[in-house]
Design a binder for these strands. Structure first.
Length: 817
DNA sequence: AGCACGCCGACT
DNA sequence: GTCGGCGTGCTC
């Protein structure tokens, strides 16, 4: 009797065992998507492999159906997925769902079908209650309601009525499969069956249009290695080809087939970067260390610590070449989610169609395409955002995490994983070389390098020995009271921008805040205008004339009144990129200004469009948020202005100093990457803060020493481990209660099982209409912390089960603390 | 998550 | 007496 282990799409910590029907001709394969019975319904499950019949035996259920015959991931990935589930205390089925491209889950739903008896009844005596049951009209007209609609109804008020109708035999609920299948897109391709000129007699019988079509087809085939041409290419050249192709197919010259279409996700113009002939010395040194480890197929983690412009990309590419020549796969993680980085262009340019892309900018269909090219081995290189750490490469030999310090690697919802950490783990499990690259590594990674867990490779020289930019600091405290100045535009910054403009050189202006003003305050009562769902001030966006919540997206018209006193005397406080842009156009009316932030970039194309304008020097000054730092370099930029460098230092977060240093270093790296020397002006209220001083001096070492001392003194990571237990719900009292209960439980655990600190419970800001509390655990031993979580999950506080409270466990939290 | 079971109060 | 609310526990 064959049994399979199946991770089901339900929040269960462990996989379930099912029988594999003996009548099926082929056995199970790990990675297959199945449909299995669970309780009274059927859900998607993922085959993890064969297993012995479990001890409980006897009453196992059978797998109902194979939904996807070709495995979506290889069995080599399963231990990794299981580890992730255990470490992050997340159900294994949910972990797999997180990993796979979306749109694949499926379950049984119920179609609401009106019986003949019911039809008669409704026609004769429509609902007398006078209630507005518009769905009944719908049902009467259409005869049935699809599962999605039926589900909504059953949950609403109408549920009772439906149950009643069901009892009377007027409607029935019919089981059926639901869930949106992402269908692989196909297109018609034309294959030439016989060379036209070899069949002269037949050729003469052809019509003019057919001859022309054949000529075009042959022309297109000439430039290609494969023997097929998409029909749309032919019709694009000759609009009359449609008919001709049909008749040619009938005459046996060509065949028309359907083929999976892989749309080019690289945007409008796939770039080309030539492969450099010579490497710089430091690049060579780094590769001399890395390549042997790739050849030995041994897990080796490297920290590639190279300043901006030191040529890390070429090191990645050469390492990837070596890995591919070994027949193994390459995984490249990049921080930004929806936007292109130059890195993916470089990989595509070097490896062409061996490259697959996985990021959230793809449509579900495109994502599935890319995923399957990896799963079936057609693609060997994957470039993607954090979730690409789950990519189905059967045998990754090299895993690259670019900008490893970037906060975007941490997912802050659902499965709260750290993709950089998982990349290292996956490398360890699959004997891969791991390259963590950064100009300003995370404190944790650098610590690992210092302790010898990672091998550190330093690259301190820039291409063509370009000097690092000159950085001057402007103390905003001293500038504030001065006459004639505008806030946040010191005379130094204004003068430098003017000078750059006169010299026809480009400038970058960085401020990590979107919008026009960060809040509106009531002049009468002093209250700020807040989001109705979140405990957050609304940001004024002048372009759209709206007040927007940067957390949940809720927005209202900017012409509003104070909710507390009904006063209409509101004044705006604070600065965002939008205001920066506006003020700038007053100070420098002749400058061409562009803005790059989440508001000006909705789609990938907008991003490219703005970058192209800058590259073509149609822009003198680019204003922007973090977005301007992401991996693009503008050779003509010679001045970088950082408008408010300490903006992030006020956050109640042990990582604030680290983040500020990293952000500043990264922005500064944008200056002077061309032939001309760059300079940077940093405006700040805290000119003596070590994060800002060390960034000014381009001194990572000094920053690290300061930071690590602070962390040691306060017992923060890497000197301890943290787990945050979060509670949220629609009602303050019960959320607090749940957190308190959990707090006590954890205190008890700590007393019984050894040292472990329980901080809190503490309230958090209300977000999305939900009240939030947290209990923070810290301790030296990860095992103890995980033990505490297990205890918490098994003895789930009663307050969590009831009253719509959700509990989330955030292992290695990075957010606000 | 979804679904059944079972225990309580509010009605015909 | 039943209907339907919600808390509790299970799903191979």
């Amino acid at each position: 009797m064959t049994c399979v282990e199946v991770a089901v799409a339900a929040p269960l910590a462990r996989p379930l065992t099912y029988l594999w029907p003996g009548r099926w001709p082929v056995g199970p394969r790990p990675g297959q998507r199945l449909l299995v019975p669970l309780g009274r319904r059927k859900v998607t499950g993922y085959c993890l492999g064969e297993t012995e019949e479990s001890a409980g035996g006897g009453k196992l259920k059978e797998v109902a159906e194979v939904l996807t015959n070709e495995p979506l991931f290889s069995s080599s990935l399963i231990p990794f997925l299981q580890w992730v589930a255990d470490y992050y205390h997340h159900p294994i089925g949910k972990v797999i769902e997180e990993a796979l491209p979306g749109g694949l889950t499926m379950k049984t739903g119920q179609r609401l079908v009106l019986t003949e008896k019911g039809r008669q009844h409704l026609l004769v005596s429509p609902d007398q209650d006078g209630n507005d049951f518009s769905w009944m009209q719908d049902l009467l007209v259409k005869g049935d309601l699809p599962p999605a609609a039926a589900r909504m109804l059953l949950r609403s008020e109408a549920g009772r009525k439906i149950a009643q109708l069901q009892r009377q035999g007027f409607v029935i609920l019919q089981q059926e499969l639901t869930g949106r299948q992402v269908r692989p897109r196909t297109e018609a391709v034309i294959r030439l069956l016989q060379k036209a000129d070899s069949v002269v007699s037949a050729l003469q019988s052809l019509k003019k249009s057919e001859k022309k079509t054949l000529a075009i087809l042959e022309g297109l085939l000439a430039g290609q290695c494969c023997r097929k041409v998409p029909r749309r290419l032919i019709t694009a050249e000759y609009s009359g080809a449609g008919k001709a192709l049909k008749s040619l197919a009938e005459k046996g010259f060509i065949a028309v087939e359907e083929q999976r279409v892989f749309r080019d996700p690289f945007g409008l113009e796939p770039p080309y970067y030539p492969r450099p002939q010579h490497l710089m010395e430091e690049q060579q040194v780094a590769l001399d260390a890395i390549l042997p480890c790739i050849d030995e197929k041994r897990f080796t983690p490297f920290l590639l610590h190279g300043i901006t412009g030191s040529g890390k990309t070429e090191v990645y590419l050469r390492a990837a070449e070596e890995t591919i020549s070994q027949g193994r796969g390459v995984m490249v993680l990049v921080p930004e989610i929806a936007l292109a980085t130059q890195l993916e262009g470089h990989f595509y340019s070097r490896f062409g169609d061996l490259t697959a892309l996985l990021h959230s900018g793809l449509s579900p269909g495109e994502r599935l395409d890319q995923w399957q090219r990896l799963a079936d081995g057609h693609a060997k290189v994957v470039v993607g955002a954090r979730s690409a750490v789950f990519a189905p490469l059967a045998d990754p030999g090299l895993i690259i995490v670019d900008e490893e310090h970037d906060g975007a690697y941490k997912q802050e919802e659902g499965l709260r994983y750290q993709a950089r950490d998982l990349a290292v783990l996956r490398g360890k499990m699959q004997q891969a070389v791991v390259l963590l690259g950064s100009a300003s590594p995370s404190v944790v990674s650098f610590m690992h390098a210092r302790q010898g867990k990672y091998r550190r490779l330093a690259m301190n020289r820039r291409v063509e020995d370009r000097p690092l930019p000159q950085v001057s600091i402007v103390d905003l405290k001293k500038e504030e009271g001065k006459e004639g100045g505008r806030p946040l535009f010191s005379p130094q910054l204004t003068a430098a921008l003017r000078e750059n403009l006169d010299n026809r050189e480009q400038s970058l202006l960085f401020l990590n805040r979107r919008g026009f003003a960060s809040l509106l305050i009531c002049r009468d009562c002093g209250n700020p205008v807040q989001c109705r769902n979140c405990q957050i001030s609304l940001t004024l966006h002048k372009g759209t004339n709206r007040l927007v919540c940067h957390h949940c997206g809720y927005s209202i018209n900017a012409a509003t009144i104070c909710e507390h006193c009904r006063g209409s005397n509101l004044f705006s406080v604070g600065f965002g990129t939008e205001r920066l842009e506006e003020e700038l156009s007053t100070i420098l009316p002749d400058a061409r200004i562009a803005r790059l932030d989440r508001d000006s970039v909705v789609k990938r194309r907008d991003f490219y469009a703005i970058l192209n304008k800058v590259r073509k020097h149609e822009v003198d000054i680019l204003v922007g948020t973090q977005m301007i730092t992401k991996g693009h370099h503008f050779p003509a930029v010679t001045l970088v202005g950082i408008v408010w460098a300490d903006a992030g230092l006020g956050m109640p977060d042990y990582k604030a100093g680290e983040r500020t240093f990293q952000l500043l270093s990264q922005v500064m790296g944008r200056a002077g990457r061309g032939e001309r020397k760059g300079r940077v002006i940093v405006q700040t209220y805290q000119p003596d803060h070590y994060s800002i001083r060390c960034a000014q001096q381009h001194d990572y070492g000094a920053f690290f020493e300061q930071e690590i001392q602070l962390r040691g003194a306060l017992k923060y990571p890497p000197f301890s481990r943290l787990i945050n237990v979060l509670f949220d719900g629609p009602e303050e009292k019960s959320v607090k209660l749940a957190a308190m209960e959990a707090g006590h439980l954890l205190q008890d655990f700590s007393r019984a099982n050894g040292p472990l600190q329980v901080l809190g419970p503490a309230p958090l800001l209300r977000l999305g209409g939900r009240f939030r509390w947290q209990v923070l655990l810290s301790g030296a031993s990860v095992e103890k912390l995980h033990g505490a979580c297990h205890r918490l999950l098994s003895a789930s506080p009663s307050a969590v089960r009831s009253r719509h409270i959700r509990m989330h466990i955030d292992v290695d939290p990075e957010g606000m603390l």
